[in-house]
């Protein structure tokens, strides 16, 4: 590659980065300005209205919302990993007729977008009295992620975990549970990391399910709280911007620290999904 071609490409790459960063730049300038500041959105403020952040935190009750989002994400991830890996093991290892059928069913369910059954799902949740509970958000998220999780774990077990290890453990007298938890599960670490990242990003950012099941202020997640705050404050977008900035910060920081795992995990999940 000639030097000038390289220069043009570097320039293009910087241009792309600049274009992609524009919305974040606007978000930051907005969150730092007073509501009465009518300067251009592009102008960087000469002062920092840091009160916006504390005000937004208080008004949106972000502390509470973060707690709800965090709890739901944590329990959904733990339950998903446990139920998913436990299910995938026999489906991948014991190829009986029954297991083959069950596995195919799980894979087939992946093509059904869960939200298309919104009406009956909402109806069911109301009738069992679990609307506005964090539990239902956890269970529902786990269920919608289970088929993909079982598919990913199943593929990983089939292709990378040697049967000889399990045979050896069996000869040593280990039970099925012992083999699974002591021998197999520790070897599933790479794919578990992938599933964990996939699940956490989606559950943390979920709005589609949360808006149906978590409308009460006490169980609202960050996205639901922010949506209702936006609805009430269209005249005070600077506060909304401050709230939005706080809301995206935890995931953004986590991404910047663990970017390799994030990119690999989300891409792997996408490729296999």
């Amino acid at each position: 590659m000639s030097k000038s071609a390289k220069g043009v490409m570097t320039g293009l790459s910087i241009l792309i980065a600049l274009v992609h960063i524009v919305p974040f730049y606007i978000l930051i300038t907005m969150s730092l300005k007073k509501t009465a500041d009518f300067s251009s959105r592009w102008a960087f403020p000469k002062y920092f209205q840091l009160d916006n952040f504390s005000e937004a935190w208080k008004q949106v009750d972000l502390g509470h919302a973060f707690f709800n989002t965090f709890t739901i994400t944590l329990f959904a991830a733990l339950l998903l990993i446990f139920v998913g890996s436990l299910a995938a093991y026999p489906l991948a290892r014991r190829e009986t007729k029954l297991n083959k059928i069950v596995y195919v069913c799980f894979v087939a369910i992946m093509v059904i977008p869960p939200l298309t059954a919104l009406v009956p799902l909402y109806n069911m949740v109301v009738s069992i009295g679990m609307i506005n509970t964090r539990t239902i958000a956890v269970l529902n998220n786990v269920a919608s992620f289970l088929p993909l999780t079982i598919f990913l774990y199943g593929g990983f077990i089939k292709s990378t975990i040697p049967r000889e290890l399990e045979e050896a453990a069996r000869i040593d007298g280990a039970s099925i549970m012992g083999i699974f938890f002591r021998v197999v599960f520790p070897l599933l670490k790479p794919i578990t990391a992938t599933i964990l990242i996939l699940c956490c990003v989606y559950v943390w950012n979920d709005y589609q399910f949360a808006i149906f099941f978590l409308q009460d202020a006490s169980v609202r997640t960050v996205t639901v709280a922010l949506a209702s705050f936006f609805g009430e404050n269209t005249n005070n977008l600077n506060l909304v911007a401050a709230a939005a900035l706080i809301a995206i910060l935890p995931m953004a920081i986590l991404f910047l620290v663990l970017q390799k795992y994030f990119i690999r995990g989300l891409a792997a999940g996408a490729i296999k999904g």
């Binding site: 299910a87 029954l98 069950v102 059904i112 799902l121 069911m124 269970l139 529902n140 269920a143 079982i150």
Partner: peptide, 21 residues
Amino acid sequence: SLFWMYLPACILVIIFIIYPF
């Protein structure tokens, strides 16, 4: 078949995906 190992997964999927569908 060790079906009890995937029973919890089946129950969740039946309640939250298949039944609503």
